[in-house]
Design a protein around this nucleic acid. Structure first.
Lengths: 214, 214
DNA sequence: GATTCACAAACAAACGGTCGTTTGGTCACT
DNA sequence: AGTGACCAAACGACCGTTTGTTTGTGAATC
């Protein structure tokens, strides 16, 4: 009855998902019509359905792709050797690099995922919970080992880290003077400095001015 | 020809704007139809146009109302007596309190403003720039007075503050155990601790666990 | 000769918005 | 008290357009 949406193969389908990521991030899910999508690929909207099952399926694919990228990097950071500070830094740098390198998918992952219908949204929510759990784990480790202050608020600290990383998409412009890695390092330094028990201050260079962007 | 949309008077119109704020924040601007709005007020969509000029006018009203609230609180924090730390704290606490007390309008202000057409969007952008300028001013003052580290990155620090505050809407639930004020204080402490030149550590109580929410 | 892929046309439903009409209530005037 | 003018507010049908999706057809590719 319904034509099966062949999984991930087909290069043309990948183009579709990429175009959807760009449009959804620019105009939002509900603000993007199938005609917009088709126009951006030089075809008619009806033709899209040779590659996909529905508009929502497309949204899910973009969102899930974003979630997987974040999780992969986060898992690597969580399990690597080193102090909790090292891992927290690797986590945040990885988060910000991922967000910037795939700005479209990351924006959609952060902003449009809530428009998924119940079941698909729940699947994404699971991954988000897992992700936040990884940050909390690192912070908890740092406290256990005496590296971080014992009275640090774990949930609040984790959210501060994620908030910093999650808002990058809102102000980052590719023509800025700082690299993603550099941004990640600076954010981490600010946060970790406040977390540590003893002072292990690393000198930080003064950066150039950048334009105002909230 | 076009019926003039009477400014801000009319209590019924205010109800309309409030209902729009709630719906726009829940379903997004493009995801909310005029029929949704009318239904939520128990009237027909055609009747809405006795009070408003267009859907976009409604969006602008919600967004601008949000912007004004943030700006008012921020201006008060910026001009108050005290150290830069005090003002930075007042700023962030005010930001978070405002965001939570008017969660709907704040969410729309942060997420949906970009769907305004060019001119209206530019007006909002101005206010956002002003807002960010206020944070930077406080950080700059702190550096000048020797209160904050001389090598602190002003733009980055300002963004860290705003990011923390701007993401609150995404995880805050009214039934949580922490008050808006408490949340603001904890965030500020984490950030300011990393900014200060000498240690002026204030003891912080360990908070209760809260549920996972990204 | 089967499979891909896009076209072209059509679909019902929903979109934002308009408009002439009806409603319920409040006036001033008799 | 009764009457008619006035008025904001809501109705309800309708506008033209766009929405996401389906389907039958035909050209190209393997």
């Amino acid at each position: 009855m319904a034509q099966t949406a062949e999984r991930t193969l087909s290069p043309r389908r990948a183009e579709l998902v990429a175009a959807a990521a760009r449009l959804f991030s620019e105009r939002g899910y509900h603000g993007t019509s199938m005609k917009h999508l088709a126009d951006s690929l030089g075809m008619l909207k009806g033709s899209l359905y040779a590659h996909i099952g529905s508009k929502e399926e497309l949204l899910y694919e973009v969102v899930d792709e974003g979630a997987e990228r974040f999780l992969t990097r986060a898992h690597a950071a969580s399990t690597m050797e080193g102090t909790a500070s090292d891992r927290l830094e690797a986590f945040l740098v990885g988060h910000i690099e991922t967000a910037i390198e795939h700005l479209d998918a990351a924006t959609v992952f952060l902003n449009e995922w809530r428009y998924l219908s119940h079941d698909l949204r729940a699947a994404v929510q699971d991954k988000r919970d897992t992700y936040e759990g990884l940050v909390r784990g690192i912070v908890t480790d740092g406290i256990s080992s005496g590296e971080f202050r014992a009275d640090a608020d774990i949930a609040m600290t984790a959210r501060l880290v994620l908030s910093a990383g999650n808002w990058v998409y809102a102000w980052y412009r590719p023509d800025g003077s700082l690299s993603p890695t550099e941004i990640g390092h600076r954010y981490t330094e600010s946060i970790v400095r406040g977390l540590k028990t003893e002072r292990t201050r690393t000198p930080a260079g003064a950066g150039g001015e950048t334009e105002v962007a909230l």
